[in-house]
Structure formats: structure tokens, C-alpha cells
Amino acid sequence: MISKAPAQRVWKRKPMITNPKLRWGLIGGVVVYLIIAFYTMEVDWGRVAAGMPRAERFLGSFFPPDFTSRWEDIYVGIVESLWMTVVSTVVGIAISIPVGLGAARNLSSRPVYLFCRGVLAVSRTFPEIILALFAVKLFGFGPFAGIVALSIATIGFYGKLLAEDIEDMDPVQAEAIKSTGAGWFQWLNYAVQPQVMPRMIGLGMYRFDINFRESAVVGIVGGGGIGATLLTSFDRYEFDTSAAILLVIITIVMFVEYSSGFIRKWVQ
């Protein structure tokens, strides 16, 4: 019991971690980490300072950006990025549906489950750019390599979410359809599809959005799309063209995001 008279009772906020040793240990650990991290970060401050005028010129080149002098390149690059996005999203989702079905524990047998989970894990861990790097080595420069990379990444992303969605579905509805004597495909169509469809359409739109953004990157390693144009403009220090490209990318992403919200509403 507290021995002090009630009038003297002081109050202090209870700390989040009650054990003081653990609390101070954690705080100390974080501080030490930050100090070491800062010291091991070799920064050439002279180079950074030298870059400041360039930073100023880069920011200045947004007012106004130069759309005209390289418009031909920008246009071709953006259009290529767009159709790469369409193809890789469609192909990726088409492949990820069987893989996702196989990776849902409540749908498939153990060996199939493990195999499909393995496929998803491998295609998910590597960033798009590494996939693109290898695709370029295998298929040569050009958009096909980029599409392969984006499709593989799409399979990993979409297949995993589809599998999780199916695992989370309401088992009662699924049982009800099964008890009518429906076949496996009928069961998929009547019990599973209606439950997962709305969310999966939304995620498909979201993946389209991601693929467009990534398609701007695979060009850096030769996978086609707007990335190559952007890289060239940086190499030539044509910052006002880079600014124009960035603004076009931002605009398209905004547009895709807005219209995907609209389509999602329309579908539901």
C-alpha cells in the first residue's frame, strides 16, 4: 500500500516499458546505433557542397519545365511505359490466378500448396530492377525484358494477396455451395469468386499503378520504357527535360489513382 497521505500522492506517467533496465538499454542501444551509423556513413561533404548550385539549377528547371525540345523522346518513352504496364499487369494477373488458387491452404493439397507458395516467395523477394537486370541478360535489351520482370513481380504480389484473401473467406458460404452438389469449378465460381472479386479488382488496379511506376525504372538497366529517356536527360544534365518527364509521370500516376477509385466504385 502507499504509505503517503493522499494529499501528497504524486503521479508520473507510467512508461511504456516498465522494466527500467530494458528501457534504458533500448534507448542506449538506439543512440549508440545512430552514432555509429552516422560515423560509418562516409560522406564527401566537399562534393555535397559543390552539388548545391546544381541542386538549385535542378529545382529551378521545374519553373518552367521543358516539354518541347525532347518531346518526341518523352512521348515515345511514356507510351512504351504505358503498354508495357498493360501487358505485364494482364499477363502477371493471368498467371497469378492459378498460382494463387494453389497457394490457398483451404483449396489445394499439401504438395501443390508448398510448390505455389515457393513460386510466390521467390518472385516476391527480388526487387523489380534485379529481375529486369537478369531479364535483359536473357532476352536482350528492350521492353520485352521489362515486361517479363514486371510480370514476375506481379505474380508474387497478386498471387500472395489472392491466396490470403481466399484463406480469409467465409467458410460457411463455401460449405453451403458445396452442399448443393456443385462441381469444383462451379464451386469456385459461386462460392469463392463472389467473395474475393471486389477486393481483387481493386488490387489489380493498384498493381497497374505500381507497374507503371516500376516501368519507369526498368529502363535504367535497359528494360524499355521512359526510364531510359530520363537517364539520358540526367547524363546530359538537361534538367528541364528531366523535370518535364517527372511531371508527366506524376500526372499519369495521379490520373491512374483517380480513375482506379472510380472503377472500383463502378464495379461494386
Partner: peptide, 28 residues
């Protein structure tokens, strides 16, 4: 928010390497 999200970290890195030079700082 939308500009930060639309541009991939590799593109941000590309710009920063051009501006402040290669290294960990550009990555951070």
C-alpha cells in the same frame, strides 16, 4: 504526397547522385 509516391526510390537516387555525388548519403 503524390509526387513523393509517384517517383521510385531509384529515380530519386539517380537525381541525388547527379546532384550531391555518389555514396550512402544520396541513398539515405
Amino acid at each position: 504526397i503524390v509526387s513523393s509516391r509517384s517517383i521510385n526510390s531509384l529515380l530519386w537516387a539517380l537525381m541525388l547522385v547527379t546532384i550531391i555525388g555518389p555514396g550512402v548519403l544520396a541513398g539515405v
